[in-house]
């Protein structure tokens, strides 16, 4: 590894750590500064009601979570604990937040991976078909699919699938985590908005790429349509599409919140819903931090992948960074529909 690459890596990892620290600060501000009394909120158990609690019990809980210290001390203590991967204990059941997350994570990772694989296939196929089709009406039909996909409420799609494929025609189980069959409907539901995002960005990239002079050159040299599409255009269209990888991973996590609730699956999403229901502040903070960490890590990986996909981008200082900025600028923000 060259020293330039090592320096670049160190800089990018440093930036990622800074974003994570800022995300920690934002969640701390939201969860501990916004409510007048976090302990009263935690004891309210949802609904935001004021519950009459024994003052001694309040004081004990406050002391247990260090909430009787001045705010800067609380913040520093919380930051220090978080740096040691100690996210505190859940209010509702007293278990360490890290253990609750670790227990739920494999199920959600499986769901997200299955949904992503499906979304990638569907999204790439839709984008390629929409630029490949010669008939105008097929083209517009295919181009209408992604806006439709991001507009459908995820919870509704899930319930429709259950109605059709669990009750009307019993093919797949309606709920639970048991076996591969139970993964199909949740993965399809979660893949709908994600594949739409992928198709949108990739189709736009493909259209741009197909209008470029090098495509003309390739055609003039007698390259087949397939070769022009797959070797020349697709490769260049992948670069702007890569920039939304972080958003897609975020969408998968946020979508899991809804999908796991609809299908009564165990996982990070259901854990988040129950944490918010119980106003379990430490658990909510841990889960939001996890989402931010996944987002930051994905972007880091993508940044390191750019030079592999695009040899024009070198891992050296300004030239590279500006190329990445251009790529980001051309990839327009995607409608992040995860709801």
């Amino acid at each position: 590894m060259s020293s330039a690459l090592a320096g670049y890596l160190a800089r990018r990892v440093g930036q990622a750590v800074l974003v994570l620290w800022a995300a920690f600060t934002v969640t701390f501000a939201i969860l501990y500064l916004l409510p007048s009394d976090p302990v009263a909120v935690m004891l309210g158990g949802g609904q935001g009601e004021q519950v009459d609690v024994d003052p001694a019990q309040l004081a004990a809980l406050r002391a247990e979570h260090g909430l009787d210290d001045p705010l800067p001390v609380q913040y520093a203590a919380a930051l220090w604990r978080t740096l040691h991967l100690d996210l505190g204990t859940s209010i509702s059941n007293g278990a360490p937040v890290t253990r609750l997350i670790a227990d739920a994570l494999p199920q959600t990772a499986l769901l997200a991976a299955a949904a992503f694989a499906l979304a990638l296939v569907l999204g790439v196929a839709t984008a390629l078909a929409s630029t490949w089709a010669r008939w105008g009406w097929v083209r517009s039909l295919l181009l209408a699919l992604p806006p439709l996909g991001v507009s459908l409420p995820t919870f509704w799609v899930g319930l429709l699938l259950i109605q059709l494929l669990s009750f009307r025609v019993p093919v797949f189980p309606a709920l639970g985590n048991e076996g591969a069959a139970s993964l199909v409907l949740p993965a399809v539901t979660l893949a709908v908005p994600v594949s739409a995002s992928i198709a949108q960005v990739l189709a736009r990239g493909l259209r741009t790429a197909l209008a470029e002079p090098y495509v003309e050159t390739a055609r003039a040299k007698g390259a087949s349509r397939a070769r022009v599409h797959l070797r020349h255009a697709l490769r260049n269209a992948t670069i702007p599409a890569l920039t939304i990888a972080g958003v897609i991973v975020g969408n998968l996590l946020a979508g899991a919140v809804v999908v796991e609730t609809v299908f009564s699956r165990v996982g990070i999403g259901r854990l988040t819903v129950s944490a918010v229901n119980g106003q379990d502040i430490p658990l909510v903070q841990g889960l939001v931090l996890l989402a931010a960490a996944v987002f930051v890590a994905t972007n880091l990986v993508v940044d390191l992948l750019y030079p592999v996909v695009d040899p024009r981008i070198r891992l050296l200082g300004g030239a590279r960074a500006s190329a990445r900025r251009t790529a980001r600028a051309t990839a327009r923000p995607v409608v992040g529909s995860t709801s």
């Binding site: 995300a23 939201i30 909120v41 609904q47 935001g48 975020g250 944490a275 502040i281 709801s339």
Partner: peptide
């Protein structure tokens, strides 16, 4: 960097 739905859920935890 925080998915919008999760950010909203954190705010709901605090606000009720």
């Amino acid at each position: 960097s925080i998915p919008a739905l999760l950010l909203s859920m954190a705010l709901i935890t605090a606000l009720g």
